[in-house]
Design a protein around this nucleic acid. Structure first.
Lengths: 366, 366
DNA sequence: CGCAGACTTGCAATCGATTGCAATCATGAT
DNA sequence: ATCATGATTGCAATCGATTGCAAGTCTGCG
């Protein structure tokens, strides 16, 4: 047998795809250089290159060093497509926003956007990519597609929307799933969320302490998180010996315009309220505007408390009292739980504490 | 030769990975079913399945129908990892945020978050996924890695940050790249951005029309977009026969706290201003708060105009006058240009019109 | 000098698809 | 009955990596 190794090393295509622009920082962008090229240059097999680059102990330190240098010289990076295929993983976590029918247009609420930013941080810290998906009405189809296509190692679902039952069914068959939202008795999936009930109760107690009695509740109680906040609201009222007045419960949507319209409509027929507890800061801000247009001053005539503590809340005029959710902690927790699920660990849902931020919009009436 | 086909069809593993939970909606999530399984069930080769599912005309309509039905029954989806590897594409577009040193912590500005939401819409409309990346200080390394790893078919860079030269160098070697930001004379990359100069000039003209003369400019002029806005500012002043007062130029950062601190510091030593033009709404809002804390009322004592028209601008109190950027159009344009680049078309940078939104914060002084 | 055992390395199968080319089949014309 | 022709289908290589197993090299010790 003639020397096969030599023959390979002398093969006509050294690596010269094209100009090979030298050591310039961006010389080889585009992924033309492959592992086989590095192997040939180093005079070893692909196996050895793979092992060297993966840090395996099975390669001679000298060989490894040479390979690493060659790889660096040609600014080679492992092709993640191929690697992931072989390892049957993806290196990608999907973040999915189920959009309710209301706001088909987009992820509007700053709370969710801030959450997204934090998740991106957390995931990139762990070397994972973040795949962003919005899902419209047909959640089941799109979600299963996403999973089956093998594009993702796990899913973070932001908000339960009104899809609780579907999520439950999905969870039966798909493990690496963490949902931001309210923990419910029959949840078969892992949730991370705030103590909605407790936070809301604290807010309403605060309004009661200020002497308010006719406190409107603004929010769509079909959403589990809002339902939990409503529980806190009603619980705080009961504790004070008051009962819930059904005419003070407004099922307003979460988007700005919808909320504004709903609240305006309400104020057109009923203005006998002295406080408002809104299920989100966006709703609270819409409420303040609507109140203003109806000649009611905040906090003088009506006190307002929101929920979330989005960035603008403190900067708003009047500064918005609100129940603070710790978004950064929430994101960290979701990612942490998801990776533990991926590793097969059994984990439990988490409920995070909230903090009542009292600001100008609910200052004690003079 | 014995009948090989028959042997295969009778092979022991029918497909029974496990329970095969029946036709339940989520029965087969997880990607266990592969093309080979479908092929076997249909009694054809993988080639035929591939062609049938890809809509090739090379398969018998009857065969195609049968394959499609079997695929549907077993809720099979093509594995995108494998497909993309074979086709050497990814089906993914990366959206990259270069974070300047200032705000290492995260994507804070609502403008960028709204942009992100819109990009997600546009990309998913085209069947592409959106990979979100934040890049810290070492832009070159991370960006080239991202590209070389073969994870992405194209890159949307949101904001030039202070990396103009690096981006230029990158663009020499990497084509499918569209940048949100200011068009500059020596750009070798495609940009989409607003008419920063024109928008700013309109805003400043408006302030001049209201009778203001000492108009502060708030923004970090190292950023190309801000530099362009500054040009508009200075141009409008010149046109009115005024000159730029260097002491009215404040290099404030883009994040809320930093902006607030910088403006407060300025007001501590100089309060002889009657208007403020801020390079972003976030800065404008910070300015309003700082002015308020220094006993200056907006718009009575000082008029304020921002830039962006983020969602809270109109809802703010006082409602914020601002230069509106059409985010949705911007996102659509970026995606459109990127896909045309990917298809090899030659395209040009785009500058989008802005609209001056006059609201309460700059109402004509009484 | 010979051989066991520890180190290194390479071969070849594999992940799950796509596709050029060859092979097969059916049909109609002669 | 024979053959050209077009319509279907299958074979096998390929995308770029990883890894179990076998083979080869080198060392030290008897």
């Amino acid at each position: 047998m003639p020397d096969k190794k030599l023959k390979r090393a002398l093969a006509p295509e050294p690596i010269a795809h094209q100009g090979m622009a030298g050591p310039g920082l961006f010389g080889d962008v585009g992924g033309q250089v492959k592992m086989a090229d590095i192997a040939m240059l180093a005079g070893v097999s692909e196996s050895t290159v793979s092992r060297a680059l993966a840090g395996s102990k099975l390669v001679n330190p000298a060989t490894r060093k040479r390979i690493e240098e060659i790889a660096a010289t040609h600014s080679y990076s492992i092709d993640q497509r191929a690697r992931n295929l072989r390892l049957s993983r993806t290196g990608t976590i999907s973040v999915v926003f189920p959009l309710s029918h209301e706001s088909e247009q987009g992820i509007a609420d700053p709370f969710f956007l801030e959450m997204l930013g934090n998740l991106a941080d957390q995931l990139s810290n762990r070397g994972y990519d973040l795949l962003l998906r919005k899902i419209r009405s047909d959640v089941p189809r799109m979600l299963t597609d996403l999973l089956r296509e093998g594009r993702t190692d796990g899913v973070l679902l932001i908000g339960q929307s009104t899809q609780h039952d579907l999520i439950n069914e999905l969870a039966e068959h798909y493990q690496p799933l963490v949902v931001w939202g309210a923990r419910q008795p029959d949840n078969r999936y892992i949730t991370v969320g705030s103590d909605n009930r407790g936070g809301a109760a604290a807010a309403v107690r605060h309004l009661l302490d200020c002497g308010h009695r006719r406190i409107a509740f603004l929010g769509n109680r079909q959403l589990p998180e809002v339902a939990a906040r409503y529980q806190g609201y009603s619980q705080a009222l009961s504790a004070a010996g008051l009962s819930v007045a059904p005419d003070l419960l407004l099922p307003v949507p979460f988007d700005r315009q919808g909320a504004f319209a709903a609240i305006s409509g309400f104020l057109d027929r009923d203005r006998a309220i002295d406080a408002v507890f809104a299920a989100s800061d966006i709703v609270a801000i819409a409420a303040i505007r609507a109140l203003d247009q109806h000649g009611l001053k905040v906090p003088h005539d009506v006190a307002v408390v929101g929920f979330d503590d989005i960035m603008v809340a403190a900067a708003y005029t009047p500064a918005l009292s609100t129940v603070r959710q710790d978004i950064a902690l929430g994101a960290r927790t979701m990612v942490d739980l998801l990776f533990r699920l991926i590793e097969g660990e059994a984990v439990n849902s988490v409920e995070l504490p909230t903090a009542l931020m009292i600001r100008a919009s609910s200052a004690h009436p003079a």
